[in-house]
């Protein structure tokens, strides 16, 4: 079970959180300007990363803040959590076994 570092509350068990999928996918400013292909890309296309992955979490049973986490999808190593609008932390070199 993951131990997730809420930027406000500190490390808490996974059960207090809700997963929010890939981070840094901004809603288009003016969706009407997008053609079907670009709109579909925004709606449906997500990375399927093997390695470090930026994802969104909600501390749903705690402070109800949405924030971002860099997690390694193979080892579950969490490099860091950061608030919305903050820059992601520097990525370490890929861990053993996963590239």
């Amino acid at each position: 079970m993951l131990n997730i570092d809420c930027p406000w509350c500190g490390k808490r068990h996974e059960t207090e959180f809700r997963y929010g999928g890939e981070a840094h996918i901004a809603r288009p400013e003016d969706p009407a300007m997008l053609d079907d292909t670009d709109w579909a890309a925004f709606l449906f296309m997500r990375k399927n990363t093997k390695g470090y992955f930026a994802e969104r979490w909600l501390h749903s049973h705690g402070c109800r803040r949405w924030f971002n986490v860099i997690r390694h999808t193979v080892t579950h190593e969490i490099v860091g959590a950061y608030k919305m609008g903050e820059k992601p932390p520097k990525l370490p070199k890929p861990a053993g076994g996963a590239k």
Binding site: R18, G20, A26, R27, R56, L58, S60, R64, R65, W66, M84, G85
Partner: peptide, 17 residues
């Protein structure tokens, strides 16, 4: 109920800050 509140907060906190 819970899902809607999370949804509203997601837009307020991440899109329309």
């Amino acid at each position: 109920a819970a899902g809607v509140l999370d949804w509203l907060e997601e837009y307020l906190q991440t899109e329309w800050t």
